[in-house]
Write a protein that binds this DNA or RNA. Structure first.
Ligand code: MN
Ligand code: MN
Ligand code: MN
Ligand code: MN
Lengths: 228, 228
DNA sequence: ATTATTTATTAGGTATACCTAATTTTTTGT
DNA sequence: ACAAAAAATTAGGTATACCTAATAAATAAT
Protein backbone atom coordinates (compact mmCIF):
# COMPACT_ATOMS: atom_id res chain seq x y z
CA UNK A 1 0.00 0.00 0.00
CA UNK A 2 1.04 3.52 -0.74
CA UNK A 3 2.26 5.67 2.14
CA UNK A 4 0.80 8.97 3.31
CA UNK A 5 4.07 10.67 2.66
CA UNK A 6 4.27 9.31 -0.91
CA UNK A 7 0.86 10.76 -1.57
CA UNK A 8 1.99 14.24 -0.63
CA UNK A 9 4.95 14.06 -2.96
CA UNK A 10 2.94 12.66 -5.83
CA UNK A 11 0.27 15.31 -5.50
CA UNK A 12 2.90 18.04 -5.40
CA UNK A 13 4.75 16.64 -8.40
CA UNK A 14 1.52 16.36 -10.33
CA UNK A 15 0.63 19.98 -9.61
CA UNK A 16 4.01 21.31 -10.59
CA UNK A 17 4.23 19.22 -13.76
CA UNK A 18 0.86 20.49 -14.82
CA UNK A 19 1.23 24.13 -13.94
CA UNK A 20 2.34 26.49 -16.70
CA UNK A 21 3.87 24.97 -19.74
CA UNK A 22 6.46 22.47 -18.53
CA UNK A 23 5.92 18.80 -17.89
CA UNK A 24 9.19 18.50 -15.96
CA UNK A 25 9.29 19.28 -12.26
CA UNK A 26 12.68 20.18 -10.87
CA UNK A 27 13.90 19.12 -7.47
CA UNK A 28 14.27 22.66 -6.22
CA UNK A 29 10.80 23.69 -7.41
CA UNK A 30 9.34 20.70 -5.67
CA UNK A 31 11.21 21.46 -2.46
CA UNK A 32 10.01 25.04 -2.58
CA UNK A 33 6.43 24.02 -3.28
CA UNK A 34 6.39 21.49 -0.47
CA UNK A 35 8.17 23.80 1.92
CA UNK A 36 11.02 21.37 2.43
CA UNK A 37 14.74 21.67 1.87
CA UNK A 38 16.30 20.21 -1.29
CA UNK A 39 18.30 17.48 0.46
CA UNK A 40 15.13 16.20 2.13
CA UNK A 41 13.36 15.99 -1.18
CA UNK A 42 16.41 14.55 -2.87
CA UNK A 43 16.61 11.56 -0.61
CA UNK A 44 12.87 10.97 -0.86
CA UNK A 45 12.96 11.06 -4.65
CA UNK A 46 15.37 8.15 -4.66
CA UNK A 47 12.82 6.13 -2.73
CA UNK A 48 9.92 7.19 -4.93
CA UNK A 49 12.09 6.13 -7.85
CA UNK A 50 12.73 2.72 -6.29
CA UNK A 51 9.01 2.37 -5.76
CA UNK A 52 8.54 3.03 -9.47
CA UNK A 53 6.24 5.95 -8.80
CA UNK A 54 8.45 8.51 -10.50
CA UNK A 55 11.33 8.66 -12.93
CA UNK A 56 14.03 10.98 -11.76
CA UNK A 57 16.67 11.65 -14.34
CA UNK A 58 19.44 13.93 -13.26
CA UNK A 59 19.05 17.33 -14.89
CA UNK A 60 15.99 16.18 -16.79
CA UNK A 61 13.63 16.61 -13.86
CA UNK A 62 10.98 14.48 -12.25
CA UNK A 63 8.26 12.63 -14.14
CA UNK A 64 5.44 10.55 -12.78
CA UNK A 65 5.20 6.97 -14.02
CA UNK A 66 1.82 5.58 -15.05
CA UNK A 67 1.37 4.16 -11.58
CA UNK A 68 2.60 7.35 -9.96
CA UNK A 69 0.17 9.43 -11.94
CA UNK A 70 -2.69 7.15 -11.06
CA UNK A 71 -1.85 7.47 -7.38
CA UNK A 72 -1.46 11.23 -7.70
CA UNK A 73 -4.88 11.51 -9.27
CA UNK A 74 -6.32 9.39 -6.52
CA UNK A 75 -5.04 11.71 -3.77
CA UNK A 76 -6.29 14.65 -5.77
CA UNK A 77 -9.66 12.93 -6.02
CA UNK A 78 -9.76 12.40 -2.28
CA UNK A 79 -8.61 15.94 -1.57
CA UNK A 80 -11.23 17.52 -3.80
CA UNK A 81 -14.05 15.31 -2.63
CA UNK A 82 -13.25 16.18 0.98
CA UNK A 83 -13.12 19.87 0.09
CA UNK A 84 -16.52 19.61 -1.53
CA UNK A 85 -17.94 17.70 1.41
CA UNK A 86 -16.62 20.26 3.86
CA UNK A 87 -18.06 23.09 1.83
CA UNK A 88 -21.39 21.68 0.71
CA UNK A 89 -22.30 19.42 3.60
CA UNK A 90 -20.41 20.91 6.53
CA UNK A 91 -20.89 24.50 5.45
CA UNK A 92 -17.28 25.55 5.67
CA UNK A 93 -16.28 28.53 3.60
CA UNK A 94 -14.25 27.86 0.45
CA UNK A 95 -11.28 29.46 2.13
CA UNK A 96 -11.25 26.98 5.01
CA UNK A 97 -11.58 23.67 3.25
CA UNK A 98 -8.12 23.20 1.78
CA UNK A 99 -6.26 22.94 5.05
CA UNK A 100 -8.65 20.41 6.56
CA UNK A 101 -8.80 18.40 3.35
CA UNK A 102 -5.02 18.02 3.45
CA UNK A 103 -5.43 16.04 6.64
CA UNK A 104 -8.47 14.07 5.54
CA UNK A 105 -7.06 13.14 2.13
CA UNK A 106 -4.62 10.63 3.53
CA UNK A 107 -7.25 8.28 4.85
CA UNK A 108 -7.50 5.28 2.62
CA UNK A 109 -10.94 3.81 2.38
CA UNK A 110 -12.57 3.60 -1.00
CA UNK A 111 -15.88 2.84 0.65
CA UNK A 112 -15.65 5.98 2.76
CA UNK A 113 -14.80 8.11 -0.27
CA UNK A 114 -17.76 6.67 -2.14
CA UNK A 115 -20.12 7.62 0.66
CA UNK A 116 -18.65 11.09 1.11
CA UNK A 117 -18.85 11.59 -2.63
CA UNK A 118 -22.54 10.73 -2.68
CA UNK A 119 -23.26 12.88 0.39
CA UNK A 120 -21.62 15.78 -1.43
CA UNK A 121 -23.91 15.36 -4.42
CA UNK A 122 -21.53 13.45 -6.73
CA UNK A 123 -19.69 16.64 -7.64
CA UNK A 124 -17.61 17.05 -10.78
CA UNK A 125 -15.82 20.15 -9.47
CA UNK A 126 -14.57 21.19 -6.04
CA UNK A 127 -15.34 24.49 -4.27
CA UNK A 128 -12.49 26.18 -6.12
CA UNK A 129 -13.76 24.96 -9.46
CA UNK A 130 -11.09 22.28 -9.81
CA UNK A 131 -12.13 19.11 -11.60
CA UNK A 132 -12.54 15.94 -9.55
CA UNK A 133 -11.01 12.89 -11.25
CA UNK A 134 -13.20 9.80 -11.31
CA UNK A 135 -12.01 6.47 -9.85
CA UNK A 136 -10.08 5.75 -13.01
CA UNK A 137 -8.29 9.07 -12.91
CA UNK A 138 -10.29 10.66 -15.70
CA UNK A 139 -10.85 14.37 -15.26
CA UNK A 140 -14.03 16.10 -16.44
CA UNK A 141 -13.21 18.56 -19.19
CA UNK A 142 -13.52 22.28 -18.84
CA UNK A 143 -12.41 25.06 -21.02
CA UNK A 144 -11.26 28.03 -19.07
CA UNK A 145 -8.78 30.83 -19.19
CA UNK A 146 -7.50 33.46 -16.78
CA UNK A 147 -9.76 36.48 -16.45
CA UNK A 148 -6.62 38.49 -17.15
CA UNK A 149 -6.75 37.44 -20.81
CA UNK A 150 -10.07 39.24 -21.32
CA UNK A 151 -10.76 41.98 -23.82
CA UNK A 152 -12.91 44.95 -22.89
CA UNK A 153 -16.60 44.21 -23.15
CA UNK A 154 -16.24 40.48 -22.58
CA UNK A 155 -18.94 38.78 -20.54
CA UNK A 156 -17.73 35.69 -18.80
CA UNK A 157 -18.48 33.31 -15.96
CA UNK A 158 -16.15 32.39 -13.11
CA UNK A 159 -15.36 28.68 -13.24
CA UNK A 160 -12.53 28.48 -10.77
CA UNK A 161 -9.53 29.94 -9.04
CA UNK A 162 -5.91 28.88 -9.29
CA UNK A 163 -5.01 29.67 -5.72
CA UNK A 164 -6.37 28.03 -2.56
CA UNK A 165 -4.73 30.38 -0.07
CA UNK A 166 -7.20 31.87 2.43
CA UNK A 167 -5.87 35.39 1.80
CA UNK A 168 -6.83 35.24 -1.83
CA UNK A 169 -10.14 33.51 -1.29
CA UNK A 170 -11.22 35.79 1.52
CA UNK A 171 -10.37 38.73 -0.65
CA UNK A 172 -12.67 37.48 -3.40
CA UNK A 173 -15.39 36.71 -0.88
CA UNK A 174 -15.06 40.25 0.35
CA UNK A 175 -15.49 41.55 -3.19
CA UNK A 176 -18.56 39.26 -3.40
CA UNK A 177 -17.03 37.33 -6.28
CA UNK A 178 -17.61 33.60 -6.09
CA UNK A 179 -17.87 30.56 -8.34
CA UNK A 180 -20.37 30.88 -11.19
CA UNK A 181 -20.48 34.64 -10.85
CA UNK A 182 -21.12 36.35 -14.19
CA UNK A 183 -18.65 39.15 -14.84
CA UNK A 184 -18.72 41.87 -17.41
CA UNK A 185 -15.33 43.39 -18.21
CA UNK A 186 -16.00 47.13 -18.33
CA UNK A 187 -12.53 48.54 -18.71
CA UNK A 188 -8.92 47.47 -18.88
CA UNK A 189 -6.45 50.05 -17.62
CA UNK A 190 -3.43 50.14 -19.88
CA UNK A 191 -1.14 51.35 -17.11
CA UNK A 192 -0.84 47.99 -15.33
CA UNK A 193 -3.55 45.89 -16.92
CA UNK A 194 -5.96 46.16 -13.99
CA UNK A 195 -9.51 45.44 -14.96
CA UNK A 196 -12.84 46.85 -13.88
CA UNK A 197 -15.62 44.30 -13.77
CA UNK A 198 -19.34 44.61 -13.18
CA UNK A 199 -21.49 41.83 -11.77
CA UNK A 200 -24.74 41.10 -9.94
CA UNK A 201 -26.87 44.22 -10.00
CA UNK A 202 -24.29 46.84 -10.54
CA UNK A 203 -21.57 45.60 -8.17
CA UNK A 204 -18.21 46.87 -9.34
CA UNK A 205 -14.65 45.85 -8.62
CA UNK A 206 -11.23 46.75 -9.91
CA UNK A 207 -9.00 43.73 -9.99
CA UNK A 208 -5.22 43.82 -10.15
CA UNK A 209 -3.57 41.68 -12.82
CA UNK A 210 -2.21 39.45 -10.08
CA UNK A 211 -5.75 38.73 -8.95
CA UNK A 212 -7.19 38.50 -12.46
CA UNK A 213 -4.56 35.95 -13.34
CA UNK A 214 -5.82 33.58 -10.67
CA UNK A 215 -9.49 33.79 -11.61
CA UNK A 216 -10.42 31.27 -14.28
CA UNK A 217 -13.35 32.08 -16.51
CA UNK A 218 -15.08 31.07 -19.68
CA UNK A 219 -16.49 33.53 -22.20
CA UNK A 220 -20.24 33.47 -22.51
CA UNK A 221 -20.46 34.64 -26.11
CA UNK A 222 -19.14 32.53 -28.96
CA UNK A 223 -16.34 34.08 -30.98
CA UNK A 224 -15.19 36.25 -28.16
CA UNK A 225 -11.85 37.87 -28.83
CA UNK A 226 -10.31 36.98 -25.50
CA UNK A 227 -7.06 35.05 -25.52
CA UNK A 228 -7.61 31.46 -24.48
CA UNK B 1 -0.89 21.42 20.87
CA UNK B 2 -1.30 17.78 21.71
CA UNK B 3 0.23 15.22 19.37
CA UNK B 4 -1.57 12.43 17.54
CA UNK B 5 0.58 9.91 19.25
CA UNK B 6 -0.18 11.34 22.70
CA UNK B 7 -3.87 10.98 21.97
CA UNK B 8 -3.52 7.26 21.30
CA UNK B 9 -1.72 6.71 24.57
CA UNK B 10 -4.18 8.77 26.56
CA UNK B 11 -7.18 7.00 25.10
CA UNK B 12 -5.60 3.63 25.81
CA UNK B 13 -4.70 4.58 29.38
CA UNK B 14 -8.18 5.87 29.96
CA UNK B 15 -9.74 2.65 28.72
CA UNK B 16 -7.50 0.44 30.81
CA UNK B 17 -7.92 2.52 33.94
CA UNK B 18 -11.64 2.34 33.57
CA UNK B 19 -12.03 -1.30 32.63
CA UNK B 20 -12.75 -3.74 35.44
CA UNK B 21 -12.16 -2.61 38.95
CA UNK B 22 -8.70 -1.05 38.96
CA UNK B 23 -7.86 2.60 38.44
CA UNK B 24 -4.16 1.84 37.87
CA UNK B 25 -2.89 0.91 34.43
CA UNK B 26 0.37 -1.01 34.37
CA UNK B 27 3.02 -0.50 31.74
CA UNK B 28 2.79 -4.07 30.50
CA UNK B 29 -1.00 -3.97 30.25
CA UNK B 30 -0.77 -0.78 28.29
CA UNK B 31 1.87 -2.20 25.96
CA UNK B 32 -0.25 -5.28 25.39
CA UNK B 33 -3.39 -3.23 24.77
CA UNK B 34 -1.64 -0.93 22.32
CA UNK B 35 0.16 -3.79 20.62
CA UNK B 36 3.56 -2.31 21.36
CA UNK B 37 6.55 -3.63 23.26
CA UNK B 38 7.17 -2.53 26.85
CA UNK B 39 10.37 -0.57 26.15
CA UNK B 40 8.57 1.47 23.52
CA UNK B 41 5.82 2.34 25.93
CA UNK B 42 8.27 2.91 28.74
CA UNK B 43 10.15 5.61 26.90
CA UNK B 44 6.94 7.27 25.79
CA UNK B 45 5.56 7.33 29.32
CA UNK B 46 8.51 9.41 30.41
CA UNK B 47 7.56 12.00 27.80
CA UNK B 48 3.87 11.92 28.69
CA UNK B 49 4.99 12.45 32.27
CA UNK B 50 7.12 15.43 31.30
CA UNK B 51 4.14 16.84 29.44
CA UNK B 52 2.15 16.52 32.66
CA UNK B 53 -0.45 14.37 30.98
CA UNK B 54 0.12 11.36 33.22
CA UNK B 55 1.70 10.48 36.53
CA UNK B 56 3.83 7.41 36.30
CA UNK B 57 4.98 6.09 39.65
CA UNK B 58 7.17 3.04 39.49
CA UNK B 59 5.22 -0.03 40.56
CA UNK B 60 2.17 2.04 41.33
CA UNK B 61 1.04 2.25 37.71
CA UNK B 62 -0.03 5.00 35.39
CA UNK B 63 -2.62 7.64 36.24
CA UNK B 64 -3.98 10.40 34.07
CA UNK B 65 -3.63 13.95 35.35
CA UNK B 66 -6.61 16.31 35.15
CA UNK B 67 -5.28 17.63 31.86
CA UNK B 68 -4.49 14.14 30.61
CA UNK B 69 -7.99 12.98 31.41
CA UNK B 70 -9.52 15.95 29.67
CA UNK B 71 -7.48 15.20 26.56
CA UNK B 72 -8.36 11.52 26.76
CA UNK B 73 -12.04 12.34 26.92
CA UNK B 74 -11.66 14.64 23.97
CA UNK B 75 -10.16 11.90 21.76
CA UNK B 76 -12.87 9.57 22.95
CA UNK B 77 -15.43 12.19 22.04
CA UNK B 78 -13.96 12.54 18.56
CA UNK B 79 -13.70 8.78 18.13
CA UNK B 80 -17.29 8.15 19.11
CA UNK B 81 -18.70 11.03 17.09
CA UNK B 82 -16.88 9.75 14.00
CA UNK B 83 -18.17 6.24 14.65
CA UNK B 84 -21.69 7.56 14.87
CA UNK B 85 -21.28 9.65 11.74
CA UNK B 86 -19.92 6.67 9.83
CA UNK B 87 -22.78 4.49 11.00
CA UNK B 88 -25.72 6.87 10.86
CA UNK B 89 -24.76 9.13 7.97
CA UNK B 90 -22.42 7.00 5.89
CA UNK B 91 -24.30 3.75 6.51
CA UNK B 92 -21.34 1.69 7.60
CA UNK B 93 -22.13 -1.33 9.73
CA UNK B 94 -21.33 -1.09 13.43
CA UNK B 95 -18.54 -3.58 12.91
CA UNK B 96 -16.72 -1.38 10.40
CA UNK B 97 -16.71 1.98 12.09
CA UNK B 98 -14.10 1.51 14.79
CA UNK B 99 -11.15 1.03 12.49
CA UNK B 100 -11.94 4.06 10.34
CA UNK B 101 -12.71 6.20 13.37
CA UNK B 102 -9.23 5.46 14.72
CA UNK B 103 -7.84 7.30 11.74
CA UNK B 104 -10.34 10.13 11.74
CA UNK B 105 -10.12 10.79 15.46
CA UNK B 106 -6.71 12.40 15.22
CA UNK B 107 -7.85 15.33 13.15
CA UNK B 108 -8.05 18.40 15.31
CA UNK B 109 -10.74 20.83 14.32
CA UNK B 110 -13.39 21.68 16.83
CA UNK B 111 -15.46 23.27 14.11
CA UNK B 112 -15.37 20.08 12.06
CA UNK B 113 -16.38 17.97 15.04
CA UNK B 114 -19.28 20.32 15.74
CA UNK B 115 -20.56 19.93 12.20
CA UNK B 116 -20.11 16.18 12.14
CA UNK B 117 -21.85 15.96 15.50
CA UNK B 118 -24.85 17.86 14.18
CA UNK B 119 -24.93 15.85 10.96
CA UNK B 120 -25.03 12.70 13.09
CA UNK B 121 -28.04 13.94 15.01
CA UNK B 122 -26.29 15.21 18.15
CA UNK B 123 -25.94 11.69 19.51
CA UNK B 124 -25.44 10.84 23.17
CA UNK B 125 -24.25 7.29 22.44
CA UNK B 126 -22.15 5.74 19.70
CA UNK B 127 -23.11 2.72 17.56
CA UNK B 128 -21.80 0.38 20.25
CA UNK B 129 -23.83 2.11 22.93
CA UNK B 130 -20.83 3.89 24.43
CA UNK B 131 -21.51 7.33 25.88
CA UNK B 132 -20.17 10.37 24.03
CA UNK B 133 -18.58 12.93 26.36
CA UNK B 134 -19.64 16.51 25.78
CA UNK B 135 -17.09 19.26 25.08
CA UNK B 136 -16.36 19.56 28.77
CA UNK B 137 -15.71 15.87 29.15
CA UNK B 138 -18.99 15.08 30.88
CA UNK B 139 -20.39 11.67 30.02
CA UNK B 140 -24.14 11.03 29.81
CA UNK B 141 -25.18 8.60 32.53
CA UNK B 142 -26.40 5.11 31.83
CA UNK B 143 -27.04 2.25 34.11
CA UNK B 144 -26.16 -1.04 32.58
CA UNK B 145 -24.81 -4.41 33.46
CA UNK B 146 -23.53 -7.42 31.57
CA UNK B 147 -26.25 -9.68 30.21
CA UNK B 148 -24.33 -12.48 31.94
CA UNK B 149 -25.53 -11.23 35.32
CA UNK B 150 -29.15 -11.97 34.45
CA UNK B 151 -31.51 -14.25 36.33
CA UNK B 152 -33.89 -16.53 34.49
CA UNK B 153 -37.02 -14.71 33.39
CA UNK B 154 -35.40 -11.29 33.19
CA UNK B 155 -36.52 -9.01 30.39
CA UNK B 156 -33.92 -6.49 29.44
CA UNK B 157 -32.82 -4.18 26.68
CA UNK B 158 -29.43 -4.11 24.97
CA UNK B 159 -27.73 -0.78 25.60
CA UNK B 160 -24.25 -1.54 24.40
CA UNK B 161 -21.37 -3.90 23.85
CA UNK B 162 -17.97 -3.92 25.51
CA UNK B 163 -16.06 -5.13 22.49
CA UNK B 164 -15.60 -3.33 19.15
CA UNK B 165 -13.88 -6.22 17.35
CA UNK B 166 -15.54 -7.06 14.02
CA UNK B 167 -15.60 -10.77 14.89
CA UNK B 168 -17.77 -10.16 17.90
CA UNK B 169 -20.00 -7.57 16.25
CA UNK B 170 -20.54 -9.59 13.12
CA UNK B 171 -21.45 -12.55 15.27
CA UNK B 172 -24.15 -10.51 17.01
CA UNK B 173 -25.36 -9.14 13.71
CA UNK B 174 -25.63 -12.69 12.48
CA UNK B 175 -27.71 -13.63 15.49
CA UNK B 176 -29.83 -10.54 14.69
CA UNK B 177 -29.02 -8.96 18.04
CA UNK B 178 -28.41 -5.24 17.87
CA UNK B 179 -28.61 -2.13 20.02
CA UNK B 180 -32.00 -1.58 21.70
CA UNK B 181 -33.04 -5.16 21.13
CA UNK B 182 -35.35 -6.41 23.87
CA UNK B 183 -34.24 -9.78 25.22
CA UNK B 184 -36.04 -12.22 27.41
CA UNK B 185 -33.78 -14.59 29.33
CA UNK B 186 -35.49 -17.96 28.97
CA UNK B 187 -32.98 -20.27 30.55
CA UNK B 188 -29.56 -20.31 32.13
CA UNK B 189 -27.65 -23.55 31.73
CA UNK B 190 -25.86 -24.37 34.96
CA UNK B 191 -23.14 -26.33 33.20
CA UNK B 192 -21.26 -23.31 31.84
CA UNK B 193 -23.64 -20.43 32.43
CA UNK B 194 -24.75 -20.16 28.80
CA UNK B 195 -28.03 -18.39 28.42
CA UNK B 196 -30.94 -18.86 26.07
CA UNK B 197 -32.62 -15.62 25.08
CA UNK B 198 -35.76 -14.91 23.10
CA UNK B 199 -36.31 -11.69 21.16
CA UNK B 200 -38.29 -10.18 18.28
CA UNK B 201 -41.08 -12.54 17.35
CA UNK B 202 -39.76 -15.78 18.66
CA UNK B 203 -36.11 -15.50 17.57
CA UNK B 204 -33.96 -17.61 19.84
CA UNK B 205 -30.26 -17.69 20.59
CA UNK B 206 -28.00 -19.45 23.03
CA UNK B 207 -25.19 -17.19 24.11
CA UNK B 208 -21.97 -18.36 25.69
CA UNK B 209 -20.90 -16.62 28.91
CA UNK B 210 -18.04 -15.03 27.01
CA UNK B 211 -20.53 -13.40 24.67
CA UNK B 212 -23.07 -12.56 27.39
CA UNK B 213 -20.35 -10.82 29.35
CA UNK B 214 -19.76 -8.35 26.55
CA UNK B 215 -23.42 -7.45 26.02
CA UNK B 216 -24.51 -4.61 28.28
CA UNK B 217 -28.18 -4.44 29.19
CA UNK B 218 -30.60 -2.80 31.53
CA UNK B 219 -33.50 -4.63 33.17
CA UNK B 220 -36.92 -3.46 32.04
CA UNK B 221 -38.81 -4.32 35.23
CA UNK B 222 -38.11 -2.50 38.45
CA UNK B 223 -36.86 -4.69 41.30
CA UNK B 224 -35.40 -7.26 38.99
CA UNK B 225 -33.17 -9.74 40.79
CA UNK B 226 -30.30 -9.51 38.31
CA UNK B 227 -26.92 -8.57 39.68
CA UNK B 228 -25.97 -5.06 38.70
C1' DA C 1 12.97 -17.21 53.09
C1' DT C 2 14.39 -18.61 48.78
C1' DT C 3 13.34 -19.44 44.25
C1' DA C 4 10.70 -18.73 40.21
C1' DT C 5 8.04 -15.74 37.52
C1' DT C 6 6.57 -11.49 36.03
C1' DT C 7 7.34 -6.69 35.28
C1' DA C 8 10.21 -2.76 34.58
C1' DT C 9 14.33 -0.74 32.92
C1' DT C 10 18.64 -0.10 30.30
C1' DA C 11 21.42 -0.53 26.27
C1' DG C 12 21.83 -0.44 21.71
C1' DG C 13 19.87 -0.70 17.02
C1' DT C 14 16.71 0.44 12.71
C1' DA C 15 13.78 3.34 9.73
C1' DT C 16 11.61 7.65 8.57
C1' DA C 17 11.56 12.30 8.03
C1' DC C 18 13.45 16.22 8.64
C1' DC C 19 17.65 19.69 8.99
C1' DT C 20 22.45 22.63 7.94
C1' DA C 21 26.78 23.12 5.83
C1' DA C 22 29.89 21.90 2.31
C1' DT C 23 30.90 20.36 -2.25
C1' DT C 24 30.07 19.28 -6.97
C1' DT C 25 27.68 19.83 -11.24
C1' DT C 26 24.98 22.32 -14.49
C1' DT C 27 23.26 26.40 -16.45
C1' DT C 28 23.52 31.17 -17.64
C1' DG C 29 25.33 35.62 -18.82
C1' DT C 30 28.90 38.23 -20.91
C1' DA D 1 35.11 30.50 -23.09
C1' DC D 2 34.77 31.45 -18.53
C1' DA D 3 33.12 33.36 -14.32
C1' DA D 4 29.06 33.74 -11.60
C1' DA D 5 24.81 31.93 -10.18
C1' DA D 6 21.70 28.29 -9.50
C1' DA D 7 20.72 23.54 -8.76
C1' DA D 8 21.93 19.03 -7.27
C1' DT D 9 24.35 16.09 -4.34
C1' DT D 10 27.00 14.40 -0.34
C1' DA D 11 28.08 14.32 4.47
C1' DG D 12 26.73 14.39 8.84
C1' DG D 13 23.27 15.47 12.42
C1' DT D 14 18.52 15.54 15.20
C1' DA D 15 14.00 13.73 16.75
C1' DT D 16 10.41 10.31 16.75
C1' DA D 17 8.81 5.92 16.94
C1' DC D 18 9.54 1.61 16.85
C1' DC D 19 12.37 -2.94 17.85
C1' DT D 20 15.40 -7.04 20.41
C1' DA D 21 18.33 -8.67 23.95
C1' DA D 22 20.07 -8.22 28.45
C1' DT D 23 19.62 -6.89 33.20
C1' DA D 24 17.40 -5.38 37.43
C1' DA D 25 13.64 -5.12 40.51
C1' DA D 26 9.30 -6.53 42.35
C1' DT D 27 5.85 -10.00 43.17
C1' DA D 28 4.22 -14.60 43.75
C1' DA D 29 4.78 -19.44 44.91
C1' DT D 30 6.62 -23.17 47.56
MN1 MN E 1 -7.11 22.29 -2.07
MN1 MN F 1 -9.65 22.87 -4.30
MN1 MN G 1 -14.37 2.30 18.77
MN1 MN H 1 -17.64 2.61 19.85
Amino acid sequence: MIKTSDEKYLRAIYHISLSEKHVKASLSELAYYMDLKPPTVFERLKILGDEKLIIYNKNKGIRLTKVGQKEALNVIRKHRIWETFLHKVCKFSWSEVHELAEKLQNINSEKLMDRIFVLSGEPKFDPHGDPIPDKWGVLPLTERRPLLNSVEGCKCIVLGVNEDGPDFLNYLTDLKIGLNEKLSVEKIFPFDGSLKVRFRQGEMAVLSPKVAEQIMVSCMKANCLCRQ
